[in-house]
Design a protein around this nucleic acid. Sequence first.
DNA 1: TTATATTTTTACCAGTTGGTAAACAAAACA
DNA 2: TGTTTTGTTTACCAACTGGTAAAAATATAA
Lengths: 214, 214
Amino acid sequence: MVNKGSKKTKQAINREILESRILRSAEIIFAEKGFSGASMERIAERANISKQNLIYYFANKDLLYKRVLQETLGAWIDKLQLLELSEADPETSIRHYVKAKMQLSRDYPYGSKVFAHEIIGGAPVLRPYLVSDLKPQFERDIKVVNSWINKGFINKIDPAYFFFMIWATTQSYADFSTQMEILMGQSQLQEESYSRAERAVTELILHALGASKK
Amino acid sequence: MVNKGSKKTKQAINREILESRILRSAEIIFAEKGFSGASMERIAERANISKQNLIYYFANKDLLYKRVLQETLGAWIDKLQLLELSEADPETSIRHYVKAKMQLSRDYPYGSKVFAHEIIGGAPVLRPYLVSDLKPQFERDIKVVNSWINKGFINKIDPAYFFFMIWATTQSYADFSTQMEILMGQSQLQEESYSRAERAVTELILHALGASKK
DNA sequence: TTATATTTTTACCAGTTGGTAAACAAAACA
DNA sequence: TGTTTTGTTTACCAACTGGTAAAAATATAA
């Protein structure tokens, strides 16, 4: 009882910490094994608690999975809505957009992988969110790019293909990192290598659109 | 006994037909549910045989999974080795390369998805093949692209990023078809829509490289 | 301190699943 | 035709897994 104010009790704080520790563990296990391959036992193990204790915080696996997906999608939408494509300046807009997407791949590699598994599997859980959240945003962005085309700022190509290319390219740095590491002979994509990739991808995309000033 | 020659018995023929029917079923189920989520029961069901009968043809699930991956990777390598990037003519080479990759996405969407699940999950099974088969091919192709750069035919960018972009973009038409269908409001990517995508992707990539003659 | 709410542990189970063993059926061979 | 090889079905099970029930422990409030 009580505690109507804003002060958080020790319990509430610990709860938050533990919940986010669980979510991070779940993210990694789901990314590695997919929904079915991830066991509650292993997720709990990774979070250093018992399986039953995990179930105390997240009543069932579906719920935990949804939370992981929501957190990822939330982070993406937050970051990408901020930058609002500007009608006036394609190059700057695209630079920011690509940079933000690349940073998301770097900062949330596991969430990205869980998302990828989900979509590849037909989006059984995420479909409603894609329709209600992503689609409207997508349609707004399409309009902006169309205005660029009409003003002759960039090449004349259906904007949908343009976005698909950006998404695929940037997300592949999270989703297919394993393949990249094997091919480039690195144990992991280091910080420096990541910013080099960011620059390369940005230039490739600017050229693809014909938005580069050079 | 006997049958040292090349004539195939009815049994052998039926066996081949049934095995490929099983592999097609397995491909679809693995694509949809991932390795762990795919049950032998459901794969058998889809192939219209009993689970035990399935096990008669493929002794265990790991073996079946490996076969599905091998068939896909085999088809890819077959198609892509054929086209051998030509040192002389970047534009034609790239057009063929992109076209081949897009056709693979269209013709083997399920295999592509199984492959994606596998890589995203850390390539536990495919890693050796990536090292022994894909990496050497990759390194040969890198050299060709480098020669283009040195001759000033295309923009100066690390070829690795270039290939990652092509792969990500083309494969996304198989792997993320669900997302694309939701965003473009289509029940499936139709034939016509696919060839439009092929043209768009080709132009985007040619521009990205600065290999377009226009 | 005592009562209450929260958290953790212990014990357990029903459903699913990959796989084995063996009986049974059908085709190919001699 | 009888025999052997190949293919299919039936019966079954051990291991794993998500989840329930409830007891035990710990922290918070009065």
